[in-house]
């Protein structure tokens, strides 16, 4: 399956990014093999609605699960209507989070953190 991880850098050895909508990069990894690709999150610097945009990007990339830190309410709505399962990642590398995910050691998130309504 394809999973998306928010990342602070372009390598899978980089740390997981705790912010979802404003993460700089998404790493889309295939759990069947060790292939992955990096995409720039174009929404990171949007004035508002970053989570909504980012959510749509994840859906377009055909990921079925997302590992990140916090997800706001708007992004949560987008992701759940796209049937994406969301997991809370640990403060370790993207790579390490992927293996935690494979071992089913990550906790699924069903509730959003409070909104911070963009960057007016």
């Amino acid at each position: 399956m394809k999973i998306a991880i928010t990342s602070t850098g372009k390598e899978i050895t980089d740390l997981l990014e705790k912010k979802f909508g404003r993460a700089e990069f998404f790493i889309i990894a295939d759990t069947e093999n060790s292939e992955y690709k990096v995409i720039d999150n174009k929404a990171a610097m949007e004035a508002g609605g970053a989570g909504i945009q980012a959510g749509q990007t994840i859906i377009e990339e055909k990921a079925t699960a997302l590992i990140t830190g916090n997800v706001g309410p708007n992004a949560m709505k987008v992701l759940t209507s796209g049937n994406i399962a969301i997991y809370r990642g640990e403060s370790v590398s993207v790579e390490a989070n992927i293996s935690l995910f494979k071992q089913k050691k990550l906790q699924q998130i069903n509730t959003a953190v409070a909104s911070h309504f963009g960057m007016k």
Binding site: A50, I52, S81, G82
Partner: peptide, 11 residues
């Protein structure tokens, strides 16, 4: 322009 609309599976 404000990303206030998402279209997911045509909805």
């Amino acid at each position: 322009q404000f990303n206030a609309i998402a279209v997911i599976n045509k909805k």
